[in-house]
Amino acid sequence: MIIASKKPIEEIIQEVKDYKRLLILGCNECVTVCEAGGKKEVEVLASALRMHFIKAGKEKKIDERTLERQCDHEYLEEIRDVIDQYDAVLSLACGVGVQFTAEKYHSTPLLPGVNTCFLGANEQRGLWTERCQACGSCVLARTGGICPISRCAKRVMNGPCGGSGRGKCEINKELDCAWQLIIDRLRDLGRLDDYEIVAPIKDWSTERAGGPRKVVREDVQV
């Protein structure tokens, strides 16, 4: 899922301070699971902002709403009848949700309430780690199911580099060396000989390098 982290409340206060009527808009998907922008976080942020502005003597209307998804027309339509009541929307969705809401409600300023971080997994409560960079051309079949693009600091396709020590990465002793993990897994799978197959030069055009991407599925379009 998409992992996000809450923006510091000081930063949000600066962002919203000039808007009198504010809607804080949560999202029920990824940001709920990573506890950055779901209904709970909307409630807490709204309460904190209300108190802050009351204390500062500023009159503000701060409302709360959480949609099933902000990356879908269908759910975004649910606020069409109320959107005009607000001077701005503070979206706690990922960058996708913020933008999609902005596209839909062109005349309402949209502010991000979270920092969208990466595609990752819920490793344990309160710990999310990156697993994928959406390169658009998956190599996991060749790397023992461990991604060198998202998990190696240098994206080395034929690793490990000379900085791998005791199973850890040169940039941080707490970070596993992706290539150590790959080799360990290949060994466990009885496929260590595959290590010597040289990974070809990667076509990065399916990644960010190729410009904004699009998936078109005519078979499901109606």
Binding site: G163, G167, C177, I183, D184, Y195
Partner: peptide, 18 residues
Amino acid sequence: AANPFADPFEIRVPRLAK
């Protein structure tokens, strides 16, 4: 370059071969 001392040691020679 080759680093005979980096880990994992068992692939240091296969890596050279590569």
